[in-house]
Nucleic acid binder design. Structure first.
Lengths: 155, 155
DNA sequence: CTGAAATACTCAGTGCCCTGACTAATTCCG
DNA sequence: CGGAATTAGTCAGGGCACTGAGTATTTCAG
């Protein structure tokens, strides 16, 4: 009777976009390692000193619970090591294993190929726009989350 | 060492966008009814004759298993009825209850408000572009799924 | 009319994602 | 120093999303 058109609902579009991506990832990149798992490997790889979970979560945009699950799976697969920080007993330090580094390298190549296929319907200029528009919307909404200290300091 | 920039990965962006939306939905629309649940109500509301699960799933873009779960939750909340189709014993017919119709109406208003806030960082022209670009990418990827009978019929 | 194929749905299993409540360790302050 | 606040991580619980296997029903072909 009063149905709305979901094609004008950004949330619905976002969900469909993610599903489409999931599908392509599965067929073109890996059935074992998921996209969030790759993001975690990618966050850790450039820090040979090791990173703690919270920081990794912040970098890839995952909350404390989810990051714990993802890391546990990567640990089970032997792609990273997790040891208690001797300096600060609250933290765990995360480091990639050699296997983890190899996996990251392999997936980086495939991911690049997949991204090309995924974005193929858009021209080069449109692709830039695509990143810009989505990034701005996501950033703004994330900003609403943490009230963020007022830019003009309260007098 | 060889970390990539996730900001140029559409999949990562899609995930962040969806998370941002989830957050906003939760605070501005409903903590009870989720966005996929609303999509299902919306798909059923204009069909007083009732719809089967498969068709609903197709309309909102959910697979058979997921749609079954969502419908079960909506049924538990008393927002829809599910009865076996007497004409075809494989199907269930889904219809909104009065409560379901009321809920849809209420959420439609709030959803419109939320969409405005969500898209506020974009100008009107950019919003049109936003829908167009995401829609095209998602459609194309969904197209890869079902090989789709060749346009030029095989001779 | 009867067995094979197709269709609608269910179930088990895996993984992502969030919140709220809890534990353990550290830091900060009086 | 010693208790309070902060910080890192865990755990329980709810919901979304997919695949592969299985059940029931209908349809179609011989």
């Amino acid at each position: 009777m009063a149905a709305v058109d979901l094609a004008t609902h950004p949330g619905h579009l976002a969900r469909r976009l993610q599903q489409a991506h999931y599908l392509l990832w599965n067929t073109m990149v890996s059935e074992e390692i998921t996209s969030p798992q790759f993001a975690v490997l990618n966050a850790i790889i450039s820090e040979p000193a090791g990173l703690d979970q919270r920081t990794v979560g912040e970098k890839v945009g995952l909350d404390r619970s989810t990051i714990a699950e993802v890391i546990s799976r990567l640990g089970r697969r032997g792609l990273l090591d997790k040891v208690r920080d001797p300096q600060d007993g609250r933290r765990s330090l995360l480091r990639l294993t050699d296997e983890g580094t190899r996996t990251h390298r392999k997936l980086t190549v495939r991911t690049a190929r997949m991204n090309q296929v995924f974005l193929a319907p858009l021209s080069a200029e449109e692709q830039v726009l695509f990143f810009d528009l989505i990034g701005r919307v996501a950033d703004a909404a994330e900003g609403l989350r943490n009230p963020a200290e007022p830019v003009a300091a309260p007098r």
